[in-house]
Amino acid sequence: MSESILAANPATREGRPWYRNRKLDQYICFWSVPFFYNLFGLVFVPLSWMMPPRSPTSDIADVIAFMQSPNLLIACTILTLAIGLSAVGNACYMVQMRRMSVSPVFLFAFMAGAIVGAVVGALFPMFCFGLGAFRSGYDPEILQMMYDFGYLSFIGSLGCFVLNWGMLGLAILLDKNNILPKWLGYYVIWQLMTEFFVATVWIAHDGPFAWDGLLAFWFNMVIYVPWQIIVYVCIFRAIRNQPENELRNARFKPGATYA
């Protein structure tokens, strides 16, 4: 699919090789996103087995065994090195928001949310798990606390994502340049609703509303994963469809004198 999209790119059709593409900066950053999400999936699923979420009511022996599994440390290391890519992925949204007719306030509010989200939604929870594995011999209560802290922080980090998706959705709906399709704006706001549903994980220990519950986790995942893919496909199309003369580097002609 990616090849066909690239082939349809007007710049490559002009005969310019991909590495001379004017939008190469955007394409590099864009393609870091699937790379990052795969890494993210690798870190959280087969490497740490933190996802799919373990039960909040797990037996303490299971909690200890999980919290001390050495793979958690590998996961932590990879995440530490890669967390910066979350910034790159969010910057791809921001570039499109910047092109919209709306005020940059949306952009900067989004940026603040992106910073907080990376810390509370990824780095901190992973460290909670890694700390248990780093030093064997922590008391079971301490491990249980880090287990809870990790899961609640990872699954229950609401505010920054409400902010981010709210800003993105509103910006799309108010935009008059039609950078991203209007239905995507509604789709983003719709997805935002699922953030509210997650609030229950802070209360429920079992049943559909716990952090491994049918509604609070699985239903949200069913909505979230296709949504995330569709949003990035739309971002890709927005990059591809950006007219060449609108690019910031379009004014630099080789040989021209410009300070």
């Binding site: 399709p181 209007k182 239905w183 704006g185 509604y186 789709y187 706001i189 719709w190 609703m193 699922t194 559909p208 049918l214 509604l215 239903f219 909505i223």
Partner: peptide, 22 residues
């Protein structure tokens, strides 16, 4: 109304529908 708004309406009804069934 705006056609894309229906996207939101139907999506919202879908979410609530799943919750009602549950």
């Amino acid at each position: 109304g705006e056609a894309s708004m229906w996207f939101f309406i139907l999506g919202d009804l879908l979410i609530f529908g799943v919750y009602f069934v549950c």
